[in-house]
Amino acid sequence: MRYWWVNHKQTSKQELGGGYLWSPIREASGARSQFYDNMRIATPGDAVLSFSGGVIRHLGRVADFASPAPKPDSFGAVGDYWSASGWLLPVAWEELPAAISPKQIIEELAPLLPAKYSPIHPESGNGNQKAYLAEISAALFEKLTGQILAEAPQSVLQASTTKALASIDDSIATQVLQDPGLDATTKQQVVLARNGQGLFRSRVFGLEQSCRLTHVRTPALLIASHIKPWRSCSTAAERLDGANGLLLAPHVDRLFDKGFISFTEAGQVLVSPRLDPNDLTRLGLAEACATGCAPFSERHAPYLQFHREKVFLK
């Protein structure tokens, strides 16, 4: 288990209420930030301390791996200079019995703070500029909270993940339905595409005949899965493009959607180092992943590139 500290005074209300953390992928200048990269390093079950307004009031458990998602509408004008796309990290939050003020015990905390990428200044106890999600030691976590956490119940983590992703997707669906540039039929089809249905599913079937890995062909057993996730698409055309989809058996779809596997244009299967290789054997997919699949078309290429860069867990 890893331990994290998030500085999110500007967005704490939205993130605590929505069950997530959200950050841009890079700084406004285009530079990489370790604090933003940490969003993809955090692993389900990790602990997170919420620091806002000078105190720690909430403890969270990372519910799922971070995935690409647009900036939440609930942020409003906050972070206007941030990119419109970033990382969404589902977190199950709970309020602590009493708020913790790091500044009041900064002399005790200072030796335990990270030498690099510290969330707060070791002398003043104020939040460091640009610091967002910072990794901290178990010793610092225990010093602050007086506890070391047991494993989180999977039901709690799953519920938080569902809540966070549904919140983002529902917001996007509302935007689609209110878009004056789309006719009523297109709006309906874009919303249906969220769940792999309607026109999108028909278009995917026009390009694919079976599951890429299992070769299952029965339509009722196949999911029309977006390559570039529905919530990450910027236009209705992308959300309805059959080339932005694959037909996958349910267990393959789950692996692909969560970023545990991806594909090269040549058909090589990429397996995430975060996936237990024994699970591929248990799912009956080890041989299929080693063998790969048929090459993809040029139309698939940009979507596959997005999946490898933003969804696949490295």
Rank of each mutant, 00 (worst) to 15 (best):
Lys71Asn: 06
Lys71Leu: 08
Lys71Val: 03
Pro72Val: 02
Pro72Asp: 05
Ser74His: 07
Phe75Ile: 00
Phe75Tyr: 15
Phe75Gln: 06
Phe75Trp: 08
Gly76Met: 11
Gly76Gln: 14
Gly76Leu: 10
Ala77His: 12
Ala77Asn: 13
Ala77Cys: 09
Val78Trp: 07
Val78Phe: 13
Val78Glu: 12
Val78Asp: 11
Val78Arg: 13
Gly79Asn: 02
Gly79Arg: 01
Gly79Cys: 08
Asp80Gly: 13
Tyr81Glu: 15
Trp82Ile: 03
Trp82Ala: 07
Trp82Cys: 12
Ser83Trp: 13
Ser83Glu: 15
Ser83Ile: 02
Ala84Ile: 11
Ala84Pro: 09
Ser85Val: 11
Ser85Ile: 10
Gly86Leu: 05
Trp87Gln: 05
Trp87Leu: 03
Trp87Gly: 00
Trp87Arg: 04
Trp87Tyr: 10
Leu88Cys: 08
Leu88His: 01
Leu88Ser: 07
Leu88Ile: 14
Leu89Lys: 02
Leu89Met: 05
Pro90Cys: 01
Pro90Asn: 02
Val91Ile: 07
Val91Thr: 04
Ala92Asp: 15
Ala92Gln: 11
Ala92Tyr: 11
Ala92Thr: 06
Ala92Cys: 10
Trp93Ser: 03
Trp93His: 03
Trp93Met: 00
Glu94Ile: 09
Glu94Gln: 11
Glu94Ala: 12
Glu94Trp: 03
Glu94Val: 09
Glu95Gly: 09
Glu95Cys: 10
Glu95Val: 10
Glu95Asp: 09
Leu96Val: 01
Leu96Ser: 05
Pro97Tyr: 06
Pro97Ala: 06
Pro97Asp: 11
Pro97Ser: 11
Ala99Glu: 13
Ala99Gln: 03
Ala99Gly: 02
Ala99Thr: 08
Ile100Val: 09
Ile100Tyr: 01
Ile100Arg: 00
Ser101Cys: 04
Ser101Ile: 00
Pro102Trp: 00
Pro102Asp: 05
Lys103Ser: 06
Ile105Val: 10
Ile105Gln: 13
Ile106Thr: 07
Ile106Ala: 07
Ile106Trp: 03
Ile106Asn: 08
Ile106Lys: 06
Glu107Phe: 11
Glu107Ala: 15
Glu107Gln: 14
